[in-house]
Nucleic acid binder design. Sequence first.
DNA 1: CTTCCACAGGAAGGTCTGGCGG
DNA 2: CCGCCAGACCTTCCTGTGGAAG
Length: 417
Amino acid sequence: MKNAVHSDIFGRLLKSKGLFVDREAMRPTYTPGILPHRDDEINDIASVMVPALRGETPSNILIYGKTGTGKTAVTKFVGKQLLKKGKETGKHVNFIYINCEIVDTQYRILQNIANHFINDWSERIPFTGWPTDEVYTRLIRMIDKNGGVTVIILDEVDKIKGDESLYSLSRINNDLEKAKVSIVGISNDLKFTEFLDPRVRSSLGEENMIFPPYDAGELQDILKQRVEIALKPDSIDEDVIPLCSALAAQEHGDARRALDLLRISAELAERSETPRISRRFVRLAQNKIEIDRILEVVRTLPAQSKTILLAILLQEKQNKKAGSAGAITTGEVYEVYKNLCKKTRTNSLTQRRVADLISELDMLGIITARVISKGRYGRTRDINISSSSDEIMAVLKEDDAFKELSNYKIRGQTRII
DNA sequence: CTTCCACAGGAAGGTCTGGCGG
DNA sequence: CCGCCAGACCTTCCTGTGGAAG
């Protein structure tokens, strides 16, 4: 029996009636053919770029907007249309997209742009080795040789290290003989230009554009559109899309967030072999996203904060066993923390510092720490762990520093019953 | 009403790292 | 390469305080 079940696992999974037709359509990287509620933005950008089709230099644009407001999608969309029209009308137009979060140094940006013009692999500029100005002059020559108008998209411009890159790019037209370059910068930090060289600022921001967040109704339209492409028909309850939209709208109208919520709901429903996505799965998905976020934060916590968090978890268990409901105080945590430090042979911080780290954990949303007064018995923080303490514990146990503590018992736990 | 616990949380100063201009 | 400085990280010392107990 067992073998019958375990043989051909993938075959079974493939055959099982999944909910997805095209999973990709629900990923944030997917660019749909129609962008709902972004007509104004599309037109604005297109009207700035249209000179490219007449062989003139379009103004540089800076686009602002929070995450999930469609900046990247709209820009890429306009870029595609521009290329298409360029081909139709026989105008030479180039369109280069660079994500500066990944490509973040001057050398790599120049290298990326340059390699866009090279088809022959052997002529490519190497990842490293050349002087930056050599790459630059080579790039200038290539753009000029290629001719036409080149539009360069710098997504997440604020992530670029150092400002020479932007300075050289913003002045690139001065070094070109006949070709023309226009730059579109995308940033989710509204104050990003404050730290820029004024010359770069005025050059890059010839045109400024702000993408407003989506409201719940607009998010619904976006989700509906994707659902039609991504999911099998009739696999979703009516009230699921409004719920996802409302939840995401509360969170700054982030379309990426709404899509993630819906996609994970669908994945969870699929995994539980339910034929339809219902509200229940949205709640589960929301929970999963939150837990994943918390676990990721915990994983990257500095060692001392991890120790403090472990102390809180241990103390919570201890208190629960003793029957005294939850409520952990700073003093209790500090005692456990000091013992942990002794066990791991690390030196402990002062209570003052630990108190600050505890409120940091609170701000990260891993724990909640309210200040309460217990009258005669002093004023302290009332510390509670956010629901998923077991998962957090599991993540903490991954840490080498706590490996040897697996059988550790809190000292002095002989209690008066 | 006063007392007084068990901290909160501000201020100031020490130490260490890493970047940057000379 | 060196000295300088900013900023992160901690410590020391401090004053302030909500409210149950007396």
